[in-house]
Structures are given as C-alpha cells and as structure tokens.
C-alpha cells in the first residue's frame, strides 16, 4: 500500500510533497539533481500575462532562521510558460499546479483561463498574497470581499480546480478563508511569506532594493501551523500547507495542524534534495507513529474522538 498517496480536487498525488511556487522555478534547475517524477506535484513559479523582470537587486537578505525575498514576480510571461515550460515539464509524470498572478482582475482571469487549458496543469494556485509587487498580488488578498470576487471570476473561467494562496499579512485569516471558500475555491494553500524588512548596520539603509520583502523559512513555521490549525477547523475545503518545512517531522506537524498536503519552499535552496529526502523518510516516520496512511494525520491536533496513537513499542 502506498501510505503517501493523496487525492485532492484535481490532484491525484503519489505523495503529498511538492516544491512551493517561487522556490523551484519551472523545475529545470532541480531536474539536474533528481527525477522530478518523484514529486507529488510541482507548484510552478507565478506567471503573469506579460513577461516581468521583477525588482532591482539585492533581492534577498538573510534573517535568523529565515530569509527575506523581494523578487517581484519575475517570470517569462504566459506565452512562454505555455509554449516552453509546461511542454518541457510534460516529460515528467507529475501534476503541475500553476501559480497565477496579475495586476488587475482582468489579467488574473485571462491567465487563469489559458493556463487551465494546458494538459499537464491539474490545478491553479491563485496568488493573491505576493507582498513584493506594487499592483496586484497582496492587494487582492487582504480584503475578504475582493479576494472572494477574484476567486469567483477565476472559478468561472478555469477548467481545473482552483486553490487560493492565502497571505498571513491579515488580521483575521479565518474570515478570509471562509470568504474564499464561499466564493467557490476548491482548496487553500497557506501561508505565503510575511512582510518583513532588514536594515544594513553600516549604511542605515534597507538591505533589499525593494526595502521590504517576504519572510520565509523555518522562522515562519509556527505562524503557518497556527494559521492552518485555525483555518482547517473553519472550512471544509482541503489545505496545502507551507511555511518553513525542512523535514518529515515538519510535514507531520503540518498535517496534524490540518493540512492535506504540503509544499516545501526555502529549504530547496539549502538542500536541493530536500523533497526526495522527505518523501523517502515519511513512510518510516508514519510507521513509527503508528499510522497506516498519511491522511490519518490531517487535523489530528484538533479532531475529537480519534483513537490514541501508539508510538513505537
């Protein structure tokens, strides 16, 4: 029995581990390290209608147990992704979750419509949480009514299920999640980065050219866990969890909080083999924890009436 196989709307995953959008490009770089077919899915880099260069450099800065990035949604544009990146990825037996972004609702709708028609795109991830662009991105992800309207519009045109990527930069993430669920989203992905900043001690100026950036890495894991714990109890659509995952134990923690699958982001930069390593380690960890299947872990931290876990001997 495959204890890792997971079924989610639009996604039949051989395991619930996927690289997070923005941390894996379009897969080409990591294909040098391992066979991408090993992955549960791939969340490709956010794509906009036109090519974007993104922000000036420096675009990254380190923080304790984390990093700030302000890439600014650099991408080659929808045409190139449809004509070159997705056909290239089609050589691998792995479903693609296409992250889509835009500056206007019209742009999101256009990208969603065409991206969802690509044969290996099994789901969309609606990016309403990028903190590094002036227009769009997070602007659509901090007011529930706006997020709901965009979700509805994208759902109308998409031929595949739509997952909405939530921003942690909100006062009430549960309210946001509920509005998006009510608007017809098939699932949620959470969390995107937290808005942060670093200042150079010698120059007294921000390190990032964009001044602020999104915080990721192990530093944000407890925030992601808390938010997934809250949201998963308030909605009935599945959650793909992310935020600082580095190990198989981290994956289980996200599942306990309420995730049904997870994405690994920053950790890819530190260890290119982190995803296949986690996939390889999970079955033994499930065995040790007394689970037959990983889906038994989902929401275990709050579900009532679950039998006690028998750990080890």
């Amino acid at each position: 029995m495959n204890r890792l196989a997971v079924q989610l709307p639009g996604l039949s995953l051989k395991n619930p581990i996927m690289p997070a959008s923005g941390c894996f490009g379009f897969g080409r770089e990591y294909a040098r390290f391992y066979d991408l077919s090993m992955l549960g899915a791939i969340m490709i880099k956010a794509t906009t209608l036109e090519p974007r260069f993104g922000n000036p450099t420096p675009r990254v800065a380190e923080t304790p147990s984390g990093m700030l990035n302000a890439i600014g949604l650099q991408n080659p544009g929808l045409e190139k992704v449809l004509e070159e990146e997705l056909p290239w990825l089609a050589q691998y037996d792995v479903p693609i979750i296409a992250n889509i972004a835009g500056s206007t609702m019209e742009e999101y709708v256009e990208v969603a419509k065409r991206m969802s028609q690509a044969p290996n795109v099994h789901a969309l991830e609606l990016n309403i949480s990028c903190p590094n662009v002036k227009k769009g991105g997070i602007a659509f992800g901090t007011v529930p009514e706006v997020a709901a309207e965009l979700t509805k519009l994208v759902k109308e045109v998409s031929e595949v299920p739509v997952y909405v990527k939530l921003s942690p930069n909100v006062t009430n993430i549960v309210e946001m999640a509920k509005a998006i669920e009510a608007a017809g989203a098939d699932g949620l992905t959470m969390i995107n980065t937290l808005l942060g900043m670093r200042i150079d001690v010698k120059t007294a100026k921000p390190i990032l050219a964009n001044r602020t950036g999104g915080l990721s890495g192990p530093a944000i894991k407890p925030i992601a866990i808390r938010m997934i714990y809250e949201v998963s109890q308030a909605v009935s659509i599945p959650i793909i969890g992310m935020g600082g995952i580095q190990s198989a134990e981290d994956v289980i923690e996200f599942f306990y909080a309420g995730a049904s699958a997870v994405a690994v982001g920053t950790a890819n930069f530190i260890d290119p083999f982190v995803c296949p390593n986690i996939i390889a380690e999970l079955p033994a960890l499930l065995e040790e924890l007394g689970f037959d299947h990983i889906s038994e872990c989902t929401g275990r931290s709050w579900k009532k009436g679950e039998p006690t876990v028998h750990c080890g001997t």
Partner: peptide, 25 residues
C-alpha cells in the same frame, strides 16, 4: 558577484538585465 539564494538558478535572486531589453535577464 551578487547576493544569491539557491545558487542553481531557481530563485531569481541574482538576476541582471540584458542590454536593450526591459524584461530579458
């Protein structure tokens, strides 16, 4: 020299412009 994230080309941290193009990198 540039500040890098991944070092392998995936994170887009260390890009630079190509002459005569707004978006090429």
């Amino acid at each position: 020299e540039e500040r890098m994230g991944c070092g392998v080309g995936a994170c887009f941290a260390c890009v630079c412009h190509v002459p005569n193009s707004e978006t090429a990198y």
